[in-house]
Structure formats: structure tokens, C-alpha cells
């Protein structure tokens, strides 16, 4: 690997890290798992002049259920999600997604928060967080702590609401009582980005009526796409094949995929429809059994 020259800094405390960000700002890239950043530097597509390696910061690797949400801190790896009892007990969609992320090598190093902060529209986690209605927590030396709803956080392709001086410290996912979710992904091989990914999450009341619905799509729009119209259609209704078919048709109409080597736009739109329908049926079945 032959990137351009850069400074490599390894702060030992969060304060020190925030200090560097405050001082160097836009020339800095934060290195957590590095699974997107390092390949981009290798190809010289990205050439930050400073890398701040946060891997040795203490107190940034928790996965726990506190204050009504599941907290995923900045150094939690994809494989930590797979191994986490908390996630398995608390969140079906995240449990379902983690094994689909990249390949085992990437999952050992890459982080959930890093994936969301990178905001590649082909990334899986941003869709998951949109479907779950998560919040992102950012900290800076001068601005303190901000809590940002995921929909506001994800601005555009490779662009988020995170300021150059801010560090994304954690993501908060709401807990639920009676719900279910799952991720459906079409990839050409393990480690490939999604040709199409569909995340769904449903919550039901005692009567089995949908009280909360999340649907978000990967790789079929300039950013990860939350299909609010389809979500609104589902809330207040009982799960049924017809209803899910309708929601899937809305999702297929809402996306705007491009034709590339992974498939034609028309094909991807078809997969969105098929997967949304399948995913909602699966989520409902999980929710009904929970």
C-alpha cells in the first residue's frame, strides 16, 4: 500500500482526540476500523493529511441497553454485534444484518459507527438505523454533546451532519417490546456491497396491529433511503400479504437505482419489491412470535 504521506496520531484520551479534531478539523480523518478509509487511501482517492486513530481510547466499546435504548459505541466491531447477547435479545434487525456485512475479515475490524459516519449509500448499517429510528451522538471540544436523529444525520452520499471537529461516539437504537425485523441482501459474493439491501422493522400491539414500521433501502438511491410512505401505510393495519405487497410496490417506486455491473435499474427495482415483501413478512412473523 502506497498512500500519500500523512500524520498519524494516537490519542490516549477522548479529550485529547477532541483537541486534535478542534485544532486540525477538516484535514483530519478519524480511523476506527479503517475498512473503507484505508482502501481509499491506498488508491489515493482519499488523502487526509492527518489520521487520528481512536482505537486506544478507553470507554468506547460498549454495547448495552440503557435508558430505553441499545447503545452501540464507536469502537464496536461488526463481529461484536454478532457475538453480543444484548443485541440478540434486544434487536432482531441488527442481529439479522451483522452477518451480511462484508466478510469475516472486515467484520473483525470494521465498526458500526464508522460505517454510518462514512455514509456510503451501499453500506448496510445506515439503512438499519433508518428503519429503527436510531439517534447519533456526536461530541466536540467546543460544542459539547449533540444527539442527532438518524434522518437528519445522513445528509447525502458520503456526507453527514457530523462537523469536522466532532467525533461520533455512539448510536442509540430504541428498545421495543413486541417487534421483529430482518435484513435481506443480494450480493454477488461475500464481501461485495449490496446489489440491493432491504431493512424492515415492525412493532405490534397486543391486538397484533402494527404500531411502528421501518423500511429502508441500500444501494438503490443516492443515499440510504427510508421509505416513509410505505411505513405510514403499514401503521394501524394488521399484517397481511396484500398489505406487504402494497408497501413493497411503494418501496419499488420510491427507489431510484442506477444500471451498473451489479444489474440494471429495472432489475434492482424488482429486487426491492421482492425483498421488501419477503422482509416484511419475515418481520411480522418474528413480531407475532415474540
Amino acid at each position: 500500500m502506497y498512500p500519500r504521506a500523512f500524520d498519524y496520531l494516537v490519542p490516549r484520551t477522548r479529550e485529547e482526540a477532541l483537541e486534535v479534531l478542534a485544532e486540525r478539523g477538516s484535514e483530519v480523518k478519524v480511523l476506527a476500523g479503517g475498512q473503507s478509509l484505508i482502501p481509499m487511501m491506498k488508491l489515493r482517492f482519499a488523502s487526509p493529511t492527518t489520521l487520528v486513530d481512536i482505537n486506544r481510547l478507553p470507554g468506547l466499546d460498549a454495547i448495552d441497553a440503557v435508558n430505553g435504548h441499545v447503545r452501540i459505541q464507536a469502537l464496536v466491531r461488526h463481529n461484536d454485534i454478532i457475538r453480543s447477547d444484548v443485541v440478540r435479545a434486544e434487536n432482531h434487525l441488527m442481529t439479522s444484518t451483522a452477518p451480511w456485512v462484508a466478510d469475516p475479515l472486515v467484520r473483525n475490524r470494521g465498526t458500526v459507527c464508522g460505517s454510518v459516519a462514512h455514509h456510503d449509500p451501499e453500506g448496510d448499517w445506515a439503512s438499519v438505523m433508518l428503519a429503527l429510528g436510531a439517534e447519533v451522538v456526536a461530541e466536540s471540544r467546543d460544542g459539547g454533546t449533540r444527539v442527532i436523529p438518524i434522518e437528519d444525520f445522513l445528509v447525502d452520499m458520503f456526507t453527514t451532519a457530523l462537523e469536522p471537529t466532532e467525533l461520533l461516539t455512539e448510536i442509540r437504537v430504541p428498545r421495543y417490546e413486541r417487534g421483529g425485523g430482518n435484513y435481506q441482501k443480494l450480493e454477488r459474493k461475500v464481501g461485495d456491497y449490496a446489489t440491493v439491501g432491504v431493512a424492515t422493522h415492525l412493532e405490534l400491539d397486543e391486538a397484533g396491529v402494527i404500531t411502528k414500521a421501518g423500511i429502508a433501502l441500500t444501494s438503490v438511491y443516492v443515499r440510504n433511503l427510508k421509505v416513509t410512505e410505505a411505513e405510514a401505510l403499514l401503521v394501524g393495519r394488521a399484517p397481511s400479504a396484500e398489505l406487504f405487497g402494497e408497501a413493497a410496490a411503494i418501496a419499488a417506486a420510491a427507489c431510484d437505482p442506477t444500471s451498473d455491473i451489479r444489474g440494471s435499474a429495472e432489475y434492482k427495482r424488482n429486487i426491492v419489491r421482492v425483498f421488501t415483501e419477503r422482509s416484511l413478512a419475515e418481520s411480522a412473523s418474528i413480531a407475532q412470535g415474540s
Binding site: 488508491l43 459474493k189 461485495d192 455491473i261
Partner: peptide
């Protein structure tokens, strides 16, 4: 050239 790196030119893994 589309296929000038291992993201575009695919090598199957043991999984598939």
C-alpha cells in the same frame, strides 16, 4: 476498464 480491482473483479470465497 471495469474490473480493475477485486471489488469489481470477483474472486469467489469458500462461502459461495
Amino acid at each position: 476498464c471495469i474490473g480493475s480491482n477485486f471489488m469489481d473483479y470477483l474472486i469467489p470465497t469458500a462461502w459461495e
